[in-house]
Design a binder for these strands. Structure first.
Lengths: 351, 351
DNA sequence: TTGAAAGCGCTAACAT
DNA sequence: ATGTTAGCGCTTTCAA
């Protein structure tokens, strides 16, 4: 089905098979042994310049491409890694953060010989097929990208396979040997809140994400850190769910219960976007009445009328580092088990 | 080699290798030949019930999983298909439409033995690596998901490999033999505009997408169809870019240039979301002053204060059908070259 | 119905 | 520096 044009066939053999050229065909054309061709392909230094030229010529001529399966079989490596996404598709694809992470992963992998196998799985329990796939030696390693990490199978996957997590695995699901790259959510949040304090705000509330997500927990901790350091009260808290609608609900609840609040630190830009809507609804000006600081520096930060001051996290770099860490692991190196990426504050209008 | 825990080893051989069990190991345990085990694995009917039971028992006992590479080598099939995404990552991941398509693809593929290789490429020219990958026999087929399809390499990919496109390849880039699944953008748009007409609107403008996207072109055509049928003028048109900001700009330009307009048919919900913002900015009420109909029925349709009346397209089904078509192609069947999915109008507040 | 044997395309000792 | 030779784990004729 993938017939190419026969083009040039310098050999005298009568057997010209129709399929893709094999290493053996190259060897024949170049007039050398298969081992030599193999050496050329794998960049061995033990090849004389002239032979190398001849072989490369033959390769080009035949448009030869090594057969991955054959190579994998003998090398006992699949040269492919899994991108495990234990999230609802909308959740995942709708989040600019993931877009950046995946782009970073893809970019880094482009420089390698590995390919990416996409595994969309149910958040709380990967399918039997996925499990078998991951454990069945079909990939050399895996990258797990998710906010959740609430699943035991994935949490323990690192014991059977080289795995790098995006974001710190949470609590009991974390294993001492886990590799992961995370952003410094806690200090990022702290800086965001400190900015609020520096702006003279004193009644600073927060809207967190779900309690089962490490990022939520850490950002909440950072909020408390800053308040404690400034001697401020940390009793104004509402829990959101990282959606815009959730942000609206939480903000409404917050202003109703704590009418005195003069600032809100929101754990994500998407929720902050909802907060802005809710505040407008209540006739509260931003940053006049209430200052708002978000988290992510996603496209949502600049979507509304008032630019969102937010804590930027290097999502794409996160992807790059994740891929890089796994690649080094697969290469037999010993990369750092934990990499923590820095955040930085982006000041716009809202605070 | 150092012996691990012997566990169960009914054989008398002294050579227990430590790696994953091979088919041969299963054969030994079951006391049959490798050929028989192979038959069992591949569901051959030529196996007696008792032997089958014994072999299955052995497989379960050893937790045997066939080696993909070995299988691919002999079967001359990789059992993997490429998901080619010639879009900017943000564009792609930020679009709920793609989320659904990919989910659909993934769902359908989960029922097969194929895995998905993610290929993020530059919209206008896939990297050399991607080209070699796709053409080098590394995948059995490819699924191209994009709004664009402005690239020649991808457009002609179908000649070297079974390929199914998501969305009709445009104009000169289309090849007679191409397989694709598309939604009926033209009639969908027409119905949307007809709804506007039925609501008594007469000065109906449109905001289109980029001219190089088939979906844009078709929706514009549908808009014209409806206007022509109603004897209305089709001179109120602004070109957008399928982004929210673009929708805002286009809407602003439209109301300034055609203050008399009483309705806008917008080629995507995301842009329509921007349109709603722009209209509010100008103090125009929806649907009071201006009625708005979007396209997609994405989450954006219900995000704002006023629910968006929109033309729903079955994005997830599109993914399923794409995958299904490719699978049938790979299976030697002859599925329809073109599948056109229906749209339907979802009436909310905006029109 | 079952087994024996011959590869699929490649790499990696081991010779030379 | 280059060639020879064994497989990697599986499927598949061909016999029995």
């Amino acid at each position: 089905m993938i017939e190419g044009t026969p083009a040039t066939s310098p050999t005298t053999d009568a057997d010209a098979a129709p399929g893709r050229p094999t290493l053996e065909a190259v060897a024949r054309v170049a007039g050398v042994s298969r081992a030599t061709v193999s050496r050329v392909i794998n960049g061995s230094p033990r090849v004389s310049p002239d032979v190398l030229a001849v072989v490369e010529q033959a390769i080009a001529e035949l448009n030869y491409v090594p057969n991955r399966a054959a190579r994998s079989l003998v090398a006992r490596a699949t040269m492919s890694i899994a991108l495990v996404v234990p999230e609802d598709a909308h959740r995942f694809f709708g989040d600019p953060y993931f877009a950046d992470v995946v782009q970073g992963i893809s970019d880094r992998l482009d420089e390698s010989d590995y390919v990416l196998n996409l595994q969309l799985t149910h958040p709380s329990s990967p399918s039997e097929k996925t499990r078998r796939y991951l454990l069945g030696g079909n990939v050399d390693g895996a990258l797990v990208v998710s906010h959740h990490s609430g699943d035991h199978f994935l949490a323990s996957l690192g014991r059977s396979l080289p795995v790098v997590f995006g974001g710190r695995p949470l609590g009991e699901l974390a294993h001492p040997g886990d590799y992961y790259v995370d952003v410094d959510n806690r200090s990022g949040a702290r800086h965001g809140v400190e900015h609020l304090v520096a702006r003279g705000r004193r009644a600073i509330a927060t809207i967190t994400g779900p309690a089962d997500m490490p990022a939520s927990v850490d950002r909440e901790l950072g909020w408390r850190d800053a308040l404690a350091a400034a001697g401020l009260s940390d009793h104004r808290l509402a829990r959101g769910d990282f959606t815009e609608a959730g942000g609206i609900r939480a903000a409404l609840a917050l202003v109703d219960e704590h009418p005195e609040l003069d600032a809100i630190f929101v754990a994500s830009d998407l929720m902050a976007s909802g907060v802005l809507l809710a505040l407008e609804e209540r006739g509260l000006s931003v940053p006049g009445d209430v200052a708002v600081v978000g988290f992510d520096d996603s496209p949502y930060a600049t979507r509304g009328k008032v630019g969102l001051t937010t804590v930027a996290q290097p999502a794409q770099e996160m992807g790059v580092v994740m891929a890089d860490t796994l690649l080094r692991l697969l290469g037999g190196e010993t990369p750092p088990r934990v990499t923590t990426l820095d955040t930085h504050l982006v000041v716009r209008d809202s605070a």
